[in-house]
Design a protein around this nucleic acid. Structure first.
Length: 273
DNA sequence: AATCCACACAACCGCCTTGTT
DNA sequence: CAACAAGGCGGTTGTGTGGAT
């Protein structure tokens, strides 16, 4: 609590800390039921709860609020977290806006316990480009594959970097490159941005996503620095191999080989043909 | 059966932003 | 415009739990 009034209240009342009891939860729910959300410090003083306003707010938003979803994150939700984090970094509350019923705290915990764990095991920084590539070219495609297996078998796009036209169930999470886009034409570039429809395929009710609000700094991906999927597989695969007994290695290399074979088949032997 | 350890998640802390006076 | 209060956010810590030894 940062306010002087709040500090005074803290001095006057011996505040409770730690886990909430059922009785406290009931009191909080009842108070909010009668008076609504907000005015958390007032709530803390008037509800009879010996908690700070902040503590009440957190307990309500992260746990007691009726629309808070419990249980494991779905594949689609995991996919969205990886995707949105790759764009926005640790903007948990912003990411949470795209996952109805999930809280920023929950997403943050997911990232720390699941995603950062992988980076630790691989002994790389979770913000490093090599780890980001691993997420993007191994983890995310694998999630897509798992999603496709649990869906009504749509054809699997072996590489989600590339759009699959005319298949609504496929999470096409990139904006299709313009016609002028080509690796042989490095002067072109395009924003890497999920389309509203692709996000809708993944996660239901989404706020409208503007084409240009993907990167806060307005940056774009330059074709000159945008590796082809095969190149990524190769480079990340090499790296993974060099990691020795890393968690991703055999599985990842198998996946890379499989993905490469599927690309060949899917795109008729040439990705950008 | 007891202990240890890793993990998941709830909760707290400090800083920053926003709104109000 | 400054001061203050309140809320919001991201980082960090504490604790319960389940699996391994």
């Amino acid at each position: 609590m940062s306010s002087k009034k709040g500090a005074k209240y803290c001095e006057e009342v011996e505040l409770r800390r730690g886990p909430w009891t059922l009785e406290e939860d009931t009191m909080l729910i009842h108070y909010i039921g009668c008076h609504g959300e907000g005015r958390w410090n007032l709530l803390a003083r008037c509800s009879g709860l010996k908690r700070t306003g902040k503590s009440c707010r957190l307990r309500w938003l992260n746990y007691l609020k009726p629309d808070v979803k419990r249980g494991n994150l779905s594949l689609e939700e995991q996919f969205l977290i990886l995707e949105l984090h790759s764009k926005w970094g640790n903007r948990w509350s912003r990411i949470a806006q795209y996952l109805p019923g999930r809280t920023d705290n929950e997403i943050k915990n997911y990232w720390r316990t699941r995603v950062q764990k992988q980076a630790r095991h691989l002994n790389v920084d979770s913000n490093s480009s090599v780890f980001r590539d691993a997420v993007r070219f191994y983890w995310m495609p694998r999630l897509v594959e798992k999603m496709s297996l649990t869906a009504a078998d749509p054809p699997v796009n072996p590489n989600p970097m590339l759009p699959v036209p005319n298949h609504p169930q496929q999470p096409d999470y990139t904006t299709a490159p313009p016609a002028s886009f080509s690796p042989s034409n490095p002067s072109t570039s395009y924003n890497y941005e999920p389309t509203t429809s692709s996000l809708n395929n993944c996660a239901m009710e989404l706020p409208e996503l503007g084409y240009n609000d993907a990167f806060d700094d307005g940056s774009t991906l330059d074709v000159a620095t945008l590796p082809t999927p095969s190149h990524c597989i190769e480079s990340v695969g090499d790296w993974a191999e060099s990691m020795g007994d890393g968690l991703w290695n055999m599985d990842g290399l198998w996946q890379a080989r499989k993905q490469h074979e599927e690309e060949e088949e899917y795109y008729g032997g040439g990705i950008f043909k």
